[in-house]
Amino acid sequence: MSKMETFTIMQGLIKVSKDGAVTALATHLNDEYIKFADDVVEAGDGSLYFSVASTKFRLHDAHLDMLEAKPHGQLLKYDPVTMETSLVLDGLWFANGVAVSSDQEFLVVCETWK
């Protein structure tokens, strides 16, 4: 995003401008609160892809996600034109990072517990 940084935090996906103004971009998916978003990348078309480490646990309970050993992670897409958030992948094992290939042909998602 030009002139602004985009971050993921425990409140979902937010945008922070250079003057410090904070704007929530994506806080829910299908009426469920985004609890543990943790990485974001901007694709060439302006879409934002972000990983959600866990849909069940928050940052301070991340160890419980590991102990439970179930795939609660997701890869989500935020479209800045429509301002809609959609599910790309579900059932990931603590999704903790996302990158888009240089040719924009594919995404790579890190699954920490796998």
Rank of each mutant, 00 (worst) to 15 (best):
42 E>T: 14
41 V>C: 03
21 A>Y: 09
93 W>F: 13
88 V>N: 08
1 M>H: 10
13 L>S: 11
97 G>E: 07
102 S>M: 05
95 A>S: 15
9 I>C: 14
28 H>C: 03
101 S>E: 10
87 L>Q: 11
62 A>K: 03
27 T>R: 11
6 T>W: 10
65 D>W: 00
11 Q>M: 07
17 S>Q: 04
52 V>L: 05
39 D>L: 04
88 V>E: 13
58 R>S: 02
50 F>S: 06
45 D>C: 06
54 S>C: 02
83 M>Q: 15
37 A>C: 11
25 L>D: 10
80 P>T: 12
34 I>H: 05
62 A>E: 02
19 D>Y: 05
26 A>C: 12
50 F>M: 08
76 L>R: 03
17 S>A: 15
38 D>Y: 09
104 Q>W: 02
4 M>Q: 14
15 K>F: 04
88 V>F: 09
111 E>F: 03
110 C>H: 11
105 E>H: 12
104 Q>K: 10
3 K>Y: 09
33 Y>D: 07
9 I>V: 09
17 S>T: 14
104 Q>A: 14
39 D>I: 08
78 Y>L: 05
97 G>T: 08
103 D>I: 05
94 F>W: 13
35 K>V: 10
90 D>G: 12
104 Q>H: 13
98 V>N: 12
48 L>T: 07
6 T>V: 15
39 D>A: 15
2 S>L: 08
108 V>T: 11
53 A>L: 07
108 V>M: 12
22 V>S: 02
20 G>C: 11
97 G>A: 09
99 A>Q: 13
21 A>C: 05
69 A>I: 02
19 D>C: 02
74 Q>S: 02
60 H>M: 02
71 P>M: 00
63 H>F: 00
46 G>N: 03
65 D>E: 06
89 L>H: 06
60 H>P: 00
38 D>H: 10
104 Q>E: 15
54 S>M: 01
95 A>L: 09
114 K>H: 05
107 L>P: 06
104 Q>L: 06
108 V>F: 03
109 V>Q: 05
103 D>F: 05
52 V>S: 01
79 D>M: 03
37 A>N: 10
41 V>P: 07
114 K>E: 04
52 V>H: 01
35 K>E: 08
95 A>D: 09
